[in-house]
């Protein structure tokens, strides 16, 4: 195990402990504190915003560089299918297939 692996394991443990704390705090606090509905909505919305940002950056970028055309095209196809409420597995496989096909045709 080298140094960076140890750091990575510690990071995983901290994330796991923190996540458990979030999960455990809800039922624990329920009887004592009432969280306003607005705060609850805001927490949900911030999770959605973070996820949207992750989707956008991983679809378009590879590190600090743009990822080319094949990947965003695949993600876009997946997005359209998801919007049309197609099954999850269809969405994911269609996204990968589109990207793979474009790369096969020489589109990067």
């Amino acid at each position: 195990m080298n140094g960076s692996t140890v750091v990575l394991v510690i990071a995983v443990l901290v994330l796991a402990a923190g996540t458990f704390a979030f999960r455990f705090a809800g039922p624990l606090l329920r009887d004592r504190v009432s969280v306003p509905e607005r705060t609850e909505q805001l927490m949900t919305m911030s999770a959605l915003v973070l996820l949207a940002a992750v989707i956008a950056t991983t679809a378009l970028y590879e590190g600090h560089e743009l990822a080319g055309y094949a990947r965003p095209a695949g993600v876009a196809v997946g997005g359209v299918l998801a919007w049309r409420r197609l099954p999850f597995i269809v969405v994911v496989l269609a996204a990968a297939a589109t990207t793979a096909l474009l790369r096969l045709l020489g589109v990067r």
């Binding site: 750091v7 990575l8 510690i10 990071a11 901290v14 994330l15 923190g18 996540t19 979030f22 999960r23 455990f24 705090a25 809800g26 039922p27 624990l28 606090l29 329920r30 969280v35 705060t39 609850e40 927490m43 949900t44 911030s46 999770a47 973070l50 996820l51």
Partner: peptide, 24 residues
């Protein structure tokens, strides 16, 4: 950095607190 990854992961998981309040 793993620190940034942990912080981002925790932020995404903060929604579990209101989840727990909802279905305690």
């Amino acid at each position: 950095s793993p620190v940034a990854a942990t912080v981002a992961g925790l932020l995404v998981n903060a929604r579990h607190l209101p989840f727990g309040l909802a279905v305690s």
